[in-house]
C-alpha cells in the first residue's frame, strides 16, 4: 500500500516535471483549456447571479387577497392571524378599501369619475409576499388561500416568475450545450498533446516494452499528464473568471451608484469550483486515455 502510494506520487511528480520541461507549450495548452472552460463556467456564474438578483429584488411575486364586501372586523383579525402564522407567507399588508380608492384616484387620474360614485366599489384587500418563489408551490398556496372563508378572490401574478424560470432554463440549456462542445475541445487538446508525447517518447516506450514493462506502467505517466493538464486548465478557468468578476464588479459599482442600488457579482460557490476542477481533470484524463489507447498499440517493439 505504501509502495503503491510512493509509486503514484513519483509518477505524478514526473508528470509535473515533464510539464515544466516545456513551459511555453504547457502554458499555452493550459490557457486554451482555461479559456474554453471559462466561457461556459463564466456564463453559469452570471446566470446564478442574475437568478439571485431576480429572486431577491425583481420577481418576488405577490398575491392579492380580495375580501368579500361583508367582511367584519373580527374576520379581518382572524385572517390577519392566519396569515401571520402561515409558513409560506413572509409579509402581509392590509389595504383598507378607503385607501385602495384613494390610491386609485391618484394613480389613474380619474378623480372626477371616482368622486361621482355613490359608494366605494372596492373591497378590503391584503397584499401578501410569499416566502416561496417557485411557480407550482405558489399555485398551491393560491388554492389554499382561496378556500379560506370571507376571501372572495385571490390573484396571483405568476407571469414574471414563469418568464424568469423560462429564461433561466433556456440559459442553462445554452450553457449545457456550450459546455459539452468545449468539453469536447478539452478532450481533443489533451488527445493531441498526448499523441505528440507518445511520438517523441517512442523509443522509451519501445525499450520499456522490450524489458518487461506492463501496459499499465507505460500508460500511467500519460494518463497522469492528461489529468494534471486538465486540472491546471480548470484552475486557469477559475482564475480567469475571478479576475473578470473583479473587473466587472469595479465597473458595476459605478453603475449601481448612479441608480443608488447595491449589487455585486459573486464568485461561484466552493462546491461549484470543486466541481469545475474535478470535471476538467476528468476530461483531461479521458483525452489522455483515448489518445493512449489509440496510439500506444501502434508502437510494437521489433
Amino acid at each position: 500500500m505504501k509502495n503503491w502510494l510512493i509509486l503514484h506520487v513519483h509518477v505524478f511528480l514526473s508528470a509535473l516535471r515533464k510539464f515544466f520541461s516545456t513551459p511555453l507549450s504547457s502554458l499555452f495548452n493550459i490557457l486554451v483549456i482555461g479559456i474554453a472552460l471559462s466561457l461556459p463556467a463564466g456564463m453559469y456564474v452570471m446566470l446564478k447571479n442574475i437568478q439571485n438578483l431576480a429572486e431577491q429584488k425583481i420577481a418576488s411575486p405577490q398575491i392579492s387577497l380580495f375580501l368579500s364586501m361583508d367582511t367584519s372586523k373580527d374576520d379581518i383579525t382572524r385572517i390577519d392571524r392566519q396569515l401571520k402564522q402561515h409558513a409560506a407567507v413572509g409579509q402581509a399588508r392590509f389595504v383598507p378599501r378607503e385607501q385602495a380608492l384613494e390610491q386609485l384616484k391618484q394613480t389613474t387620474g380619474l378623480e372626477d369619475v371616482i368622486g361621482g360614485l355613490e359608494h366605494n366599489p372596492l373591497p378590503d384587500a391584503y397584499i401578501v409576499h410569499p416566502k416561496i418563489s417557485d411557480a407550482s408551490a405558489l399555485k398551491t398556496l393560491k388554492h389554499e388561500l382561496q378556500r379560506w372563508p370571507k376571501i372572495e378572490h385571490v390573484q396571483l401574478d405568476l407571469d414574471w416568475v414563469q418568464k424568469l424560470e423560462a429564461i433561466l432554463k433556456f440559459g442553462l440549456m445554452a450553457i449545457l450545450i456550450l459546455s459539452m462542445l468545449l468539453g469536447f475541445a478539452l478532450v481533443a487538446v489533451t488527445f493531441n498533446t498526448i499523441r505528440l508525447q507518445i511520438l517523441t517518447q517512442r523509443e522509451e516506450i519501445e525499450v520499456s516494452r522490450l524489458i518487461g514493462a506492463t501496459s499499465a506502467f507505460i500508460r500511467r505517466p500519460f494518463l497522469y499528464f492528461g489529468l494534471l493538464q486538465g486540472l491546471l486548465g480548470g484552475a486557469a478557468a477559475w482564475f480567469i473568471i475571478s479576475i473578470s468578476l473583479y473587473m466587472l464588479n469595479s465597473n458595476l459599482s459605478q453603475l449601481t451608484d448612479l441608480y443608488s442600488a447595491n449589487f455585486t457579482l459573486h464568485l461561484p460557490s466552493t462546491e461549484d469550483q470543486l466541481a469545475l476542477l474535478l470535471l476538467s481533470a476528468c476530461l483531461g484524463w479521458m483525452g489522455a486515455w483515448l489518445s493512449v489507447s489509440q496510439h500506444l498499440w501502434k508502437i510494437e517493439p521489433r
Binding site: 516494452r209 522490450l210 524489458i211 518487461g212 514493462a213 506492463t214 501496459s215 506502467f217
Partner: peptide, 8 residues
Amino acid sequence: GALPFLRR
C-alpha cells in the same frame, strides 16, 4: 498480459 513478466 503475461508477456512483461516473462521478459523480466
